[in-house]
Nucleic acid binder design. Structure first.
Lengths: 324, 324
DNA sequence: ACACTTATACTCATGTTGAGTACAACTGAA
DNA sequence: TTCAGTTGTACTCAACATGAGTATAAGTGT
């Protein structure tokens, strides 16, 4: 008689799109898991079967297609999570669960979904991450809640954790760093301000404390989403990934909206145009988009043939001249 | 009677250090694997046991300590490899192998090893990656070998693959991009120029073709090393990881040598100093190192308290001013 | 014709980067 | 002890990138 499986390999994906000016996340309803409220949404997920699936990437593509009806464009591996008791399903006796997460980008033109799948706004899960209309007031509430937490700590830890708070949320003389999404989520989780913290312990959240810190997700999927959002924000700095989210031709405003939606930052329109045009990543088509509400905008196309990617500035560019 | 295991979770680590001005890799001798020549070196590796190991990171730390006697400093997850028939051990009937690779950095002061472990020069495995003394002549040989391969391809593929060659190796009007280590290895592998290509197929390499394209490693560990070297080169651009490889105090030349060793690029000494000093990452100690062979150099210390990390330049910095 | 909207071009101060010159402070050999 | 050689450190300068604007173009609807 076979054992119950000791180890389950679970694949899931942070599937992102941008519609209008909002970042969208593909979610499904996790059905039939004990202890998981059925109002929660989850990332598309499914098992990896070593006998059936030749590669992880093909498995995640098929899993998402099966669960949501849509198919993925750009796909990259995100992270492998395996900490014990990380996934609430482990407590339900399902054995150890190792989750391999992927990040996927989908063009806005392919947004049909099936069954229980639906598109949510990313910032429903991380309301403090959207700085496009300036610093969210929510940050002030977070700061004060975190300082309350600080006061409960042993005084030896306080200075370090205080600095961590400042770095994560851009307080004091520290600037906001958009890509620290995971660090912020983990800090809020440790500070017991995230609903999942209480759910993971089988308790109901202290409503007074978790003011409005985003919708919870099933399992540890909000943590995985934070990893994914951080990753795309980081990569956007040096790789032209925004084009994976746009149709064949687009105006520069659409391109800017995609970058803004994902980075959560507002950009200077004229300088964005200068940056994009000088990068050589786009070529004008001569056609115009007339439904802008003002002067018609030129339609551009992504130039896949760009050989010289922008060399990332920074320490790597401090080269010596060649020669003996 | 239990099945033979269907799936093995295998952890391994790219463990890097820098001694003098050379990047070093921790390697072990893989013993008792059928079909693996015992002259080949491997990355430190070992199984992940879901019943025993609470986290992946702890498992890899213990595995490396057990195999090599040394202990790791900075550790980050690199990638999870699971393609079918990727690992030659699968053909030996060991079942499906899923490998989770880590990247680790070790200070030069902790370089003792035990048993069969030893430190190798990274560039023994990738001789074309070291551009510190200018463009390696080997690149010309690689170019011509790749063009021979190109001529064998169906003509429909040639233009695309030719462009890929140019981008990977910085030919034509394309610049050398240090961090594309994996892309270069995979191109050489596909072009049948890498010894592992032949070993994976049970054949002996065509000696005439694989001129001197680095030492082979056991399993697919050279591919994993390529992933790791690419990762550290990429991260060095925007994170102060070099300090993880240095003792408490160091001269700016030592710091520069660490960055150069890993990036494979030579840097301009005066500008490197300016960059580092302005970044605020280091503080002078007032002490001097006298054994430099010339003027004594000041010893610096890494300032862990740097709040404001350098904001990575690029598209993410094109922000709008705040306000309505 | 007009106010309003969005697109696009251009300017300007400031900062960053590549490349170099100049000089300082040690060593060892003549 | 002088001097060539070596390495460390300070400073300069042109070219380019970036943040923040102003100005103008070309549509919309009333």
């Amino acid at each position: 008689m076979p054992d119950t499986p000791q180890l389950i390999i679970d694949l899931n994906a942070v599937v992102l799109a941008v519609t209008d000016d909002q970042p969208r996340l593909l979610t499904v309803a996790p059905e039939g898991y004990p202890g998981i409220s059925d109002t929660l949404r989850a990332l598309p997920f499914g098992p990896f079967d070593p006998r059936r699936d030749r590669t992880l990437e093909r498995c995640i593509r098929e899993t998402v297609t099966r669960q949501t009806g849509g198919s993925l464009g750009y796909v990259e591996q995100l992270y492998t999570f395996a900490d014990k008791e990380r996934d609430p399903r482990e407590q339900a006796g399902l054995g150890r669960i190792l989750s391999i997460a992927y990040l996927a980008l989908v063009r806005e033109s392919v947004l049909e979904t099936a069954d229980d799948a639906s598109w949510a706004n990313c910032y429903d899960y991380f309301p403090w991450e959207d700085w496009r209309r300036g610093r969210p007031v929510l940050i002030d509430e977070i700061e004060s809640a975190l300082h309350d937490w600080l006061d409960e700590l042993p005084s030896a830890d306080r200075a370090g954790q205080r600095e961590r708070i400042d770095i994560c949320f851009g307080l004091g003389n520290v600037g906001w760093d958009a890509y620290k999404v995971l660090e912020r989520y983990e800090l809020l989780y440790e500070a017991q301000l995230i609903a999942e913290y209480w759910a993971d312990r089988g308790q109901s959240p202290e409503a007074a404390i978790c003011a409005d810190l985003g919708e919870p997700m099933a399992f540890d999927h909000r943590r995985i989403l934070a990893t994914g959002l951080g990753r795309i924000r980081g990569k956007l700095r040096y790789r032209p990934l925004a084009f994976e989210l746009l149709p064949d031709t687009f105006t520069l405003l659409r391109l800017q909206q995609v970058v803004e939606a994902l980075s959560g930052l507002q950009m200077h329109k004229q300088n964005f145009r200068r940056f994009v045009e000088r990068s050589g990543l786009v070529a004008g088509t001569g056609q115009r988009e007339t439904s802008t509400g003002g002067r018609p905008a030129e339609l551009f196309r992504f130039r896949r043939a760009v050989l010289r990617e922008r060399r990332a500035p920074g320490v790597a560019t401090l080269q010596s001249p060649r020669g003996p």
